[in-house]
Design a protein around this nucleic acid. Structure first.
Length: 586
RNA sequence: GGUUCCGUAGCUCAGUUGGAUAGAGCAACAGAUUUCUAAUCUGUGGGUCGCAGGUUCGAAUCCUGCCGGGAUCACCA
């Protein structure tokens, strides 16, 4: 039972006792410019009782001060009753926090799928948002008591992969990551761009020869070759498979290096080359259940007009799969593999329609798990010039961006000149920690569904509402704790008076579990980011006004050590939910 | 055109189930360090919460319409 609920019950009882009405009492934190901790808004009573606000407020306030074990004072402004709780109450709240009860396990399994890269090009800034979101949401769900499995579905086959392969076959000359000095994913990405360039030239040549554009796009030799290669791949042609394995192998080496660098990983990896044929039996099932229907050309469809959607193809006339066919199959597979209660797809909002269709079909098929499916849709990361397009080379490359961030982090750290006693390894670790802290926080502090703008000309900040600000705050606290000479920081048994800044900190600290719960319910790391920022900011304000180690009263000194230790713990835990590490020193 | 998401300070973003004078950061300006880390703190200026109606004691928040922007509406994934 938290303090807010207890207080709300007391207020409710007071209203009932004084005015004989049952009100649904909702409290809100008192705004900073007023005295008090919680505010009860009672305009409703003013109206129903037809009595003056001042009179009602005073009656309630007096009643609570005399009867409540919590309330020590109050003031009334119009229809607002501001209640101040006794310092003793806040100390009790803090003691309970320090005891550190864990959130109860929910005994529910959740599968979170994210990253899901294509193996024809390196990761870019948009993928980073996806990876950080997926990782963070997984951590948040774990913290909220769910049993989480993190999955990645690698898009390792299809016409786009064949394009890189065609270009490599023509222009590769046996180039390898070793011979070129390029990371494997960048090398393959280079050939994907090469394909596009050559293909466009071919189209122009054909059009110059009098062919219509539509026809030229289909007839261009490279496109013909890629189509043929896809067929050969599906027929297990040894030469094609060998080439495919070679290029994909390079890409995986590159991806793994990137994942390692950005601190992202998975519990389970699915490959589309293993799963792309799944789903055809579900189409058969749907036909038998009468959920799907067949057209004259043998293609299979579903009518979703009753859901406000359209008629949707689920299997081609020639019997081959489309995207939705595969997803029906892999979704069944995922629920079979993990028996999860919920499955979350972290995928960009460009696929909103696809997931609506997918979930609608699952529901019509009577899948019991359909209600547990959720598309965590997030907005694109745009550049000032517009959308990132990998074929046109207008992307912010993930590896390059991370390296730039590390270089910036290094430059700023050196400029601050506070790294005495760091070993070279510790310095490298710090540069990376701060760089990734800045980048991850930047991408996660915005509500997922909102699209966001990234201006490469303006580097990501290290001051203000940023990851490094919070990391710095943590380092500051840890520094004080180290210098105190103690190893643990219990709450003193006797403590009487608190200053407002201390109450502010306790007030925030008690909300941590609630914020985690809300972030889990809404799949929103932004809530965590905002909360941790608020806590760090509040601490820094406290820090400038009150000393910990130089405090004359020993009791107060111990109390503050205990308080700021809790602050640093919550900062570390909260940042951990964002996938961000915090340093002991910086 | 249909569907859907978004629109808050010059810029990037917060804003709980409807509550008090709409908040942070960046940028600009003015201050704070013999004192636990100044990647910090304090202050100043900066707003028609896209527009117009409606609901009510009260609307950035809920409803309707309009304007602007994104995404999507493939036998691509």
């Amino acid at each position: 039972m938290n303090i807010e609920n207890i207080l709300a019950e007391e207020v409710k009882a007071a209203v009932s006792s004084l005015f004989g009405t049952e009100e649904n009492v909702i409290l809100q934190p008192t705004r900073r410019e007023f005295e008090g901790n919680y505010t009860y808004v009672f305009f409703g009573l003013v109206k129903s009782l037809k009595r003056a606000p001042a009179e009602i407020g005073a009656a309630l306030g007096d009643y609570l001060v005399s009867r409540s074990t919590l309330v020590s004072g109050y003031n009334v402004v119009q229809g607002f009753l501001n209640l101040k709780l006794a310092d003793r109450v806040w100390l009790d709240v803090f003691r309970a926090l320090k005891a550190g009860p864990q959130p109860a396990a929910k005994n529910r399994k959740v599968l979170v799928e994210y990253s899901s890269p294509n193996t024809n090009k390196p990761l870019h800034l948009g993928h980073l948002r996806n990876n950080f979101l997926g990782y963070s949401v997984s951590e948040i769900l774990k913290a909220a008591g769910y049993d989480v499995t993190r999955a990645c579905l690698v898009n390792d086959r299809g016409i786009h992969i064949c394009k890189s392969m065609v270009a490599y076959r023509h222009f590769g000359n046996g180039e390898t990551p070793g011979s070129s000095g390029l990371k494997g994913d960048h090398l393959v990405g280079k050939y994907y761009v090469e394909f596009d360039k050559a293909y466009k030239t071919q189209i122009h040549e054909l059009m110059a020869g009098g062919m219509a554009e539509e026809e030229a796009k289909k007839a261009a030799p490279f496109m013909v070759e890629a189509q043929e290669m896809l067929v050969q791949w599906e027929q297990n042609d040894p030469a094609v498979i060998q080439l495919w394995q070679k290029l994909n192998g390079w890409v995986y080496e590159g991806f793994n290096a990137t994942y390692k660098k950005i601190g992202v990983d998975f519990d389970k990896t699915y490959y589309e080359s293993d799963t792309y044929l799944l789903g055809k039996d579900i189409v058969e099932e749907g036909l038998q259940k009468g959920v799907f229907y067949k057209k004259d050309d043998n293609s299979v469809w579903i009518d979703l007009t009753d859901k406000g959607l359209d008629h949707k193809l689920v299997l081609r006339g020639d019997g081959t799969s489309v995207y939705i066919t595969q997803d029906l199959g892999t979704t069944d597979l995922k629920f079979r593999d993990f028996h999860c209660d919920k499955s979350i797809w972290v995928v960009g909002n460009e696929q909103d329609y696809h997931f609506k269709v997918l979930f609608a079909i699952l529901e019509k098929l009577g899948r019991s798990y359909a209600a547990g499916c959720y598309h965590l849709s997030y907005g694109m990361v745009d550049l000032p010039s517009g959308k990132m397009k990998s074929r046109e080379g207008t992307v912010v490359d993930a590896d390059e961006l991370v390296e730039e961030m590390i270089a910036t982090s290094k430059a700023i750290t050196e400029e601050k000149g506070k790294t005495e006693g760091f070993s070279d390894e510790q310095l490298e670790a710090l540069y990376r920690m701060v760089a990734l802290g800045a980048l991850k926080y930047y991408l996660l502090k915005v509500e997922p569904k909102k699209r966001m703008l990234f201006n490469p000309a303006e580097s990501i900040d290290f001051q203000g509402n940023t990851g490094p600000f919070i990391q710095y705050t943590h380092a500051r606290i840890r520094s004080i704790l180290r210098k105190s000479g103690f190893g643990s920081f219990p709450v003193p048994a006797e403590m009487e008076v608190l200053n407002p800044e201390e109450v502010d900190l306790i007030f925030l600290l008690k909300d941590y579990d609630k914020v985690v719960e809300a972030a889990a319910a809404e799949y929103s790391p932004a809530l965590i980011a905002n909360y941790v920022y608020d806590l760090a900011k509040t601490f820094n304000s406290f820090y400038t006004q009150h000393s910990v180690l130089n405090e004359a009263s020993e009791t107060l000194r111990f109390f503050r050590l205990s308080l700021i230790e809790e602050v640093s713990d919550v900062i570390r835990k909260g940042m951990g939910l964002l996938g961000i590490e915090v340093p002991e020193k910086m």
